[in-house]
Design a protein around this nucleic acid. Structure first.
Length: 575
DNA sequence: GCCGTTTTCGGCCCGACTGTTTTCAGTCG
């Protein structure tokens, strides 16, 4: 994606400036601009074409000029000059834990180190300890950092981190003196991947809690231990941080360590404006403390309503809070039914009846059965005949339900050449149709975009399944032009799915936000392949919340009747 | 490098922890 590419360029510039020992605020400025651009809900080229680069927060005269050069010529002379000054491998050193720009520069200039491998060599040869400000411990720490980097470099999917955090929190809550315990950080903000597991506890006896924490079965080693903060590495390589403060400071602790850093920096600037200083311990005014037992107290002291964690990225939520325009975020309670589920008719493991029963148990009023169509042979996709048989089964079950309804649908293959797996007359017999791409995910941008946009032109395609096609940590998103998809969705009235499988979370938060701004409807689906899979909806709802989605943006906050009435075939299809 | 109803120049969030130092720099979140 172009925005990501531009952001990466600015971040590399920041890294080089840091290593060169430039004014550190210069690096801060470049990174701030990079973050804003990475999270732009629109293609940066469009903003540029309109001549509005300077409206992006953090983009001033100098950065705008460089962006202008990069976007019009594809290269940036300033960056190329910088690159000549610092070897690329020196910047790699920054990814080693506890190695920052100063240490990287030291290793490079004094020992000629220009790669992680050379850093390791130098440390093993005992040459690092000779450097000014370094010693034997630092040398050992550098080696450990390199080892750590090799063992554990990727971010963890939310779906892996969440249950581990819940388990550890349950243990900590059993420790005497613990009155509150919560996850924090990007986990609490429900980012699709998290860097580590941040945990917080309120207790008057921190050392007892820390002892219990490091003694947990899952803890493989303790990498840092202090009176309020401890970091451990778990048996599966995950890092977990625990912070403990007394209950009267729990609100400010929770607020602070939920972040994001950008959100906090903004809040602290607000605090300064009213003569306050804010930290995880609370507020200070002329040395006098204002304690915050609850998170609401932090926001109230700044004259703000409480802001949901999923919004705390400094992407306009603080301004929205100031002007009373925070979105009314969708919650799991708003979801009346699930719009994506598989059964043992294709690649699911449960019968239609079993998964229907699970959906009823969850309190849903309806469930869309959407097994694969024949084109996905590997998933035992349904033929037209089997689809009709399934229809009878669904009718049979529906005749037994008074308070619940099965909708019959399909997850229809958008084939490699762009055609759909079933003809219109078959699709017309179904309640709703999800169309998805499962093949040819590496097609070039124009081709794959045309396939999906073509599917949206069908009056019977109600939802595009997992539009990006990404699998977190395994498969990059396809080259599909998401902005073209959004335009086509707005034009045709096709909904885009928020697929809830933790490794998908597709659509992602950034494009969800854009969709809501454009009036594009979203369908949150669990994509369950067994009854327990329905619970993944929590991940989809969390992702929608990160995209500022409100109940009216989501199809399945409506009743089944309202859904069927609003289908585009009622407007578009020939009689 | 960015930014501004306290500023167009002088600020830029705040604190924990570590390791090397005898009062602090670097890194991290």
């Amino acid at each position: 994606m172009r925005n990501q590419q531009v952001a990466d360029l600015l971040r590399r510039i920041a890294d080089i400036l840091d290593v060169l020992g430039e004014n550190p605020y210069k690096g801060v400025a470049y990174r701030r601009a990079a973050d804003q651009i990475a999270h732009l809900s629109e293609d940066i080229a469009k903003v540029w074409e309109r001549g509005e680069l300077r409206t992006i927060p953090g983009v001033g005269e100098a950065v705008a000029k460089k962006l202008n050069e990069f976007l019009s010529t594809g290269h940036l002379e300033y960056y190329e000059r910088l690159q000549e000054q610092v070897p690329a491998g020196v910047l790699d050193l920054l990814s080693i834990p506890d190695v920052g720009p100063k240490t990287a520069r030291l290793l490079w200039q004094h020992l000629g180190v220009t790669s992680i491998g050379e850093a390791e060599e130098a440390a093993r040869a005992g040459r690092v300890r000779e450097l000014p400000g370094m010693g034997a411990r630092s040398e050992e720490k550098l080696l450990q950092g390199i080892e750590l980097l090799r063992r554990h470099s990727a971010r963890i999917p939310l779906g892996d981190a969440w249950p581990v955090a819940d388990e550890i929190l349950a243990s900590l809550r059993r420790v005497p003196s613990v009155t509150r315990a919560s996850e924090a950080g990007s986990l609490r903000r429900r980012k699709s991947t998290v860097g580590d597991i941040d945990l917080l506890v309120a207790s008057a006896s921190p050392e007892v809690v820390m002892d219990a924490f490091v003694a947990l079965d899952r803890v493989a080693e303790t990498s840092l231990r202090g009176p309020t903060k401890t970091t451990v590495i778990l048996d599966d390589g995950l890092h977990a941080d625990l912070r403990v403060l007394p209950p009267e400071r729990y609100g400010s602790l929770l607020q602070y360590f939920t972040g994001s850093r950008e959100h906090n920096v903004h809040l602290r600037r607000l605090a300064q404006d009213s003569g306050l200083s804010l930290s995880e311990y609370g507020f200070k005014r002329n040395g006098e403390e204002i304690l915050c037992p609850e998170e609401e107290d932090v926001y109230r002291t700044l004259g703000l309503p409480w802001i949901p964690p999923e919004l705390r990225e400094d992407r306009g939520e603080i301004e929205a809070a100031q002007s009373g325009r925070l979105p009314n975020l969708v919650t799991e309670r708003d979801i009346l039914g699930d719009l994506h589920a598989h059964t043992n008719w294709s690649d699911g493991s449960a019968s239609v009846e079993e998964i229907a029963e699970a959906a009823r148990q969850k309190g849903y009023r309806y469930l869309l059965i959407s097994d694969h169509s024949k084109g996905l042979g590997i998933a035992r996709g349904l033929s037209v005949e089997r689809l009709r048989e399934q229809q009878h089964e669904i009718q049979r079950l529906n005749s037994r339900y008074a308070d619940f309804r099965l909708l019959h649908g399909v997850e229809l293959e958008i084939r490699g050449a762009g055609s759909l797996d079933f003809p219109d007359e078959i699709l017309a017999e179904l309640d709703m149709v999800i169309a998805s791409v499962h093949s040819g995910l590496r097609q070039p941008r124009e081709q794959i975009t045309a396939r999906v946009v073509g599917a949206m032109r069908s009056p019977y395609v109600d939802i595009i399944g997992h539009p990006l096609g990404r699998i977190l940590g395994q498969r990059e998103e396809s080259a599909v032009d998401v902005h073209a998809l959004l335009d086509a969705a707005a034009e045709t009235g096709t909904a885009l799915e928020v697929n809830s499988i933790p490794l998908r979370l597709d659509l992602d938060d950034i494009h969800i936000r854009r969709a809501t701004q454009m009036g594009v409807r979203l369908a949150i689906g669990s994509d369950a392949h067994n009854p327990g899979g329905l619970d993944a909806i929590a991940f989809g709802v969390a992702t929608a919340r990160r995209g500022w989605a409100e109940p009216q943006d989501i199809l399945n906050t409506r009743t089944a009747d309202a859904l069927l009435q609003r289908r585009k075939r009622n407007r578009l299809a020939p009689n």
